[in-house]
Design a protein around this nucleic acid. Sequence first.
DNA 1: CGCGGTGTTGATCGTGCTCAACCACAGTGG
DNA 2: CCACTGTGGTTGAGCACGATCAACACCGCG
Lengths: 247, 247
Amino acid sequence: MTQSLAPEIKDCSDCPIRHRAVCAKCETDELALLEDIKYYRSFSAGQTVMWAGDRMEFVASVVSGVATLTQTMEDGRRQMVGLLLPSDFVGRPQRDTATYTVTAASDVVMCCFRRKPFEHMIANTPHIAHRLLEMTLDELDAAREWMLVLGRKTAREKIASLLSIIGRRIADLSNKKAGQSITFDLMLTREAMADYLGLTLETVSRQVSALKKDGVIVLEGKRHITVPDMRRLMEEAGDDSDGGLLF
Amino acid sequence: MTQSLAPEIKDCSDCPIRHRAVCAKCETDELALLEDIKYYRSFSAGQTVMWAGDRMEFVASVVSGVATLTQTMEDGRRQMVGLLLPSDFVGRPQRDTATYTVTAASDVVMCCFRRKPFEHMIANTPHIAHRLLEMTLDELDAAREWMLVLGRKTAREKIASLLSIIGRRIADLSNKKAGQSITFDLMLTREAMADYLGLTLETVSRQVSALKKDGVIVLEGKRHITVPDMRRLMEEAGDDSDGGLLF
DNA sequence: CGCGGTGTTGATCGTGCTCAACCACAGTGG
DNA sequence: CCACTGTGGTTGAGCACGATCAACACCGCG
């Protein structure tokens, strides 16, 4: 498990995820305590951050980049069970071996906390415990949303769902919650998308092409995607919840 | 939303789920506070406890029976996203409309807490907040486990997975963690099983029959199931994690 | 240049869906 | 008492969606 120190050590006060991560609700004195047990680590694209079954020495926040949680069966079938974007939390307090394999999908920087001291802080710092509960409940909702995608949607709807979810998260990370058109770089390979969606990579490729042909998305290169009309994409995803707050 | 009072009001001290529910870690004085905001409600099989989008007046613990969380698309496709057994928690604090529809799969008794006071207690009672975090993390793990089932397993493996999960939970609710054979009543219709597994009810019926024909399970009637060899069932489920602690 | 990683496209196959008939069983009312 | 009805479950025949197997395109890199 090769690793390297982050190129530039950052201070909490100018941390890009300061207001969305586990530490979001912390006061300055609580942040000071966190600073003592934290350290940054970078991982390059493709690198495994942690293997399922490994002893878990730290928990962490994703500072930049994208990481994935995956589960693998003996015969090699793989299912992604989590997509970790900046501010997301990695690892489970109170457990000392990792349940899932964590992989860097792009170059990733993580803000790691030594596990034992962090667990101690959870017990003594309600601001952290509450924020973690909030984030875990959000992840549970996301996982349940994903169960509908995996269990009941067609291949085309699955692709549209993935693009719509990523598009939405990217959009409100960059506070671009304006209505219409959104552009972003998909930071997943076709294979990773397939693992996320319970499809084969061939099917992913075909359906992405189909959505492009039908004008639902515009591709430049393989990964750079523009969604001209988010509403249209969400219809394709089967999420006709027009009542949705964003878009 | 018809309702009836539970036939016999119980006291926390002789509550069957006392040691596993949200209140598991509470001291006697904290329990006393909970008693003030709690009330029991019963629901009969098939009854809807709460509709997605409804205002959520309470959160609750399942005391007895089985309830389900489901999500439905406009065209009627349905996916179960949670199976709630005794001691499981229902509802999300800090949110005032329900995200999922909750249905009683069998006759159910719930211990309900008025939402506002309960939220207040979470903020002031670390024992409750921590237990809730723990339970939410467990549910998240279960949801992720289920994502593998939905995304990558065959119909036969899906059925075997469901039976093995229910079998395991029933077994350790009743402290029957003995090795070999397990018997239980499946409290789900074929349709509910299909909704859980992302299958059609016809496929469920066929695969259950197949598992019976192959001697993996023994059926008496439609719902009463005996698993002669749990290990065998788990192999069929593709969960060859022989290292499993139970069985 | 060849090579590996990533992605596209085509042909064929098979699992699980669809549509449909039928069965078992429990109420219910004439 | 038995016909009638509704609910839950089983079984069969045919089909379609996505998997599988395979060939090839593209691109950066040694």
